[in-house]
Every structure is written in C-alpha cells, then in structure tokens.
C-alpha cells in the first residue's frame, strides 16, 4: 500500500461526516445523537461533523423502526450518499423493530432494505455508545478503502463502553436485549 492510500485510509478514519435520518423513531435516539455532538461528549474531536446534505456525508445514521411511509425516503437518501459509505443503525428499533414488532405500519427492520454496517443497541443507546458506533463505521470505511477482508455487520456489545466522563457511570440503565436477524 503506497503513501497516498495510507493517507486516504487515515483520513477516512479521522473524518467521518454523518447524516442523521429518522425513519419513524420516537425521537429518543435522535436526542441522544444530538447529545453526542454536545459539549459533554464532543464528537468533533473524532472529526465528526453533522452534515445538512446526504451528498456530503460518509456515514448514514438511521434511527427508528422503518415505517412503511419512510421506506422509500430511506432508500432514496441511501442512494444519495456518495460512496464509499457506511450505515449505522442507532437504537434497537432499526435492528429488530423493538417493541413495535409485528406492527402493520412497519416495514422494518432496517437490514431488509439497506446493508447495515454497525448496529448500536439500546433504547436509547448512550451517546458514548453512538460515538463508538460511528468510530467503528469510520474504521470500516478505511478498511474498505484498503481492500481488506469484506466487512460483515458489527453488533456493538450492550455493555457500557468505557466512559470518558464520570457521570455516565451513575446510570447504567439496562437496555432491552436485541438480536440481529441473520
């Protein structure tokens, strides 16, 4: 691998621009995603930038159980993100449809429609878990650029990741267990 490719891999890992898409979420995960950009968690240290346009983004962060109304929009936005790209499913809803399972208004879970790279479980997941998922997705982007082994979906552990701040230790809320459908 020559120098340019190394630099490109490093840049992809260090500069993940995200686009946030809500596919019928209850707004819980959306609040946590915004919290991960706030002063306490400060995602910009990882180079994360919340972009207004899907054309600018590298990583598509999708929340919500994918309602029938939003399926087409999710597919359109996924098509608008320019490659190389990664998809992060935030929360238990896009992974399993969570408590809305078997609802007639849903067309989920998300991986029926898009190739999902990272699942961040939790209802809602903590901001540091979301950050870990985004960092993992950025690593996947870099590996894809380096043509390493094909990447299969990653399910982050439900256990609390190492927290940067002391307060996060206080409320280790037990998130509902979720399983990824094969």
């Amino acid at each position: 691998m020559n120098l340019w490719n190394k630099l490109m891999c490093y840049s992809r890992r260090r500069s993940p621009w995200i686009f946030h898409m809500n596919s019928g979420s209850c707004n819980g995960c959306d609040i946590e995603l915004v919290a991960s950009l706030s002063p306490r968690y400060d995602a910009e240290q990882l180079g994360v930038r919340l972009e207004g346009s899907p054309r600018h983004a590298d990583i598509l962060c999708i929340t919500g159980p994918v309602t029938r109304n939003s399926v087409q929009a999710v597919k359109t936005v996924y098509g608008q993100v320019c490659g190389p790209k990664a998809v992060v499913a935030i929360g238990s809803c896009p992974a399993t449809t969570n408590v809305f399972i078997d609802s007639r208004t849903l067309d989920g879970p998300l991986d029926r429609h898009l190739p999902v790279d990272v699942f961040v479980p939790g209802c809602p997941p903590r901001p540091d878990a979301i950050l870990q998922g985004v960092a993992k997705a950025a690593q996947i982007l870099a590996d894809r650029a380096a043509n390493k082994a094909p990447v299969v979906s990653v399910l982050l552990p439900l256990a609390e990741p190492e927290c940067a701040c002391s307060c996060a230790q206080a409320d280790k809320a037990a998130a509902p267990a979720c399983e990824v459908k094969p």
């Binding site: 840049s11 992809r12 500069s15 180079g47 320019c82």
Partner: peptide, 11 residues
C-alpha cells in the same frame, strides 16, 4: 484530513 477524504469520494 477532510480535504483528503473528500478527494477520495465518488461524485
């Protein structure tokens, strides 16, 4: 890094 990354993206 943003600049380099953007150079490597598709249009």
């Amino acid at each position: 890094l943003d600049f380099i990354k953007l150079l490597g993206k598709d249009t």
